[in-house]
Amino acid sequence: MNNVLNFNRLLKVIRLDALNYTQRFLKTMIIIIIGVLFAGWLIGTKQKANLTGEMRLPYFFICFIIITIIAPETLYGDANDPRKGIRFATLPASALEKTISMVFYCAIVTPILAGIICLITDSILGLLPFGAFKGSFSISYIGESTRLITDLFLQEIFYSCIFIFGIVLFKKRQSIKTIACLIALIILLICIVTPTLFSQYGRKMMIMATGTFSGSEGNIEPVSMVIHYIILALLLVGIYLRVKKQKY
């Protein structure tokens, strides 16, 4: 028996996690998107501004950030728990298969689904016969900035992996502890290393949010990319090793 990676067994794990995903997270994701947009609409109403397509974009980013942060803890937060994690640990699949499934759902399925739900919501709002929601951010941006979307998707994978690492590292309040560590690390890096490496993502978000995007801004410096990929690889190895060596 192949005890490291078996395709059939991996499919079984993915199928099992799909059931958990639909039960635990799909509804939460929809509620977050609707909730954030509703909050945006309320804020807009107070400021007498409509939640038009362009105005909706920052709110969709907020949804993305929230979903990226909470997905790993909601879906796999129990995996590290001394009591609840026993089922995860004793499931007859390898640590690699469990890790792949974890990363697949948190870092790939979640942003794609979140993106689809955002697009659908945006389109529905755009079609509503009220002036408050007219327009669609998807029509305004997506067509002209596929590269930027791809970059953001890669960034999303990167940050998802940080939060997955957080849930295998910490036993309780995993997301909060990960954010705290991340803030501490970023401050440290800003102080010690070079701030330019970590400014790309924020600048892009700002550019998209303010609508002042130009194609030349989409280039990520090769050094920054390499560092990102090295950190991503280290995170994936770290997640795998924690899943493999975790004791209960």
Partner: peptide, 19 residues
């Protein structure tokens, strides 16, 4: 340990304080 699938498929454990 480490928990290999081959071994895990032969064992089932019900803990006292099961979730």
């Amino acid at each position: 340990f480490p928990r290999l699938p081959e071994t895990l498929s032969e064992i089932y454990f019900i803990s006292e304080d099961f979730a």
